[in-house]
């Protein structure tokens, strides 16, 4: 048995660190873990995809298509791009804000958040939407979207990693002066996901119920 989580975003959003934190938390639970991502040319404003696999018998660091339990998307368009990796009925947690590539500004493309979220809503098993800007503002840093997404993932229960375990991963892997801010972002992410879950399930979403989604 294994759990697969795909993280996607744009260079500079902290995708890689988030994937490490999940892998670390899973490893601390005693699971075998593998991750991989693209580093180098792709970092400069390009799409960044990180694969995290946890469980017992895992060989490939890349998640096979159609086998991701969850996609954590730092940008809604990137969730659409990586959608073929999602399992049937899988969970997508996405930040609502689109990051327009400079080519879109040049070419006058009509790339919109609504179209992306609409696709995800129609096709994912469950879609949780975060307002990353608001969370970052409340946490006091523009750089904590990654950790907020982890808080939301913990709230969903889909990865089998609790918020407490995520917190421990943050404490172990993040520079000391950033820990407090990141813990706050974890909480805010959790809160936002619970709220969205409650809204969707008519009030039955609960953090103790790992099968909530």
């Amino acid at each position: 048995m294994s759990k697969n989580c795909l993280l996607c975003g744009v260079g500079g959003q902290g995708v890689v660190l988030a994937s490490r934190l999940i892998a670390y938390a899973a490893m601390e639970q005693g699971q075998a873990v593998r991750t991989t991502e693209t580093i180098g040319m792709a970092q400069r404003g390009g799409s960044v995809v990180s694969h995290v696999r946890m469980g017992s018998e895992i060989y490939s660091p890349l998640i096979p298509q159609g086998e991701a339990d969850a996609i954590l998307a730092f940008e809604p368009g990137e969730a659409v791009r990586t959608f073929p990796y999602l399992k049937k009925g899988g969970l997508v947690i996405a930040d609502r804000r689109v990051v327009k590539p400079v080519t879109a500004s040049l070419g006058g493309s009509t790339y919109s958040s609504e179209a992306m979220l609409g696709f995800l809503r129609d096709n994912a098993g469950t879609l949780l939407i975060l307002d990353g800007d608001e969370i970052c503002q409340r946490a006091g840093s523009a750089k904590v979207l990654n950790v907020a997404l982890l808080g939301a993932a913990a709230a969903s229960g889909i990865l089998g990693i609790t918020l407490e375990e995520m917190k421990e991963a943050v404490r172990r892997n993040v520079k000391e002066r950033f820990i407090e801010m990141n813990e706050k972002a974890l909480m805010l992410g959790q809160e936002a996901a619970r709220k969205d879950l409650r809204r969707q399930t008519g009030g039955h979403g609960d953090e103790n119920d790992r099968t909530a989604v």
Binding site: V10, G45, E67, V80, P84, K87, T103, M116, F119
Partner: peptide
Amino acid sequence: SEQERELPELPVRP
């Protein structure tokens, strides 16, 4: 995979 449906148009990110 399950997901062979058509994806909406996406911006390229060179």
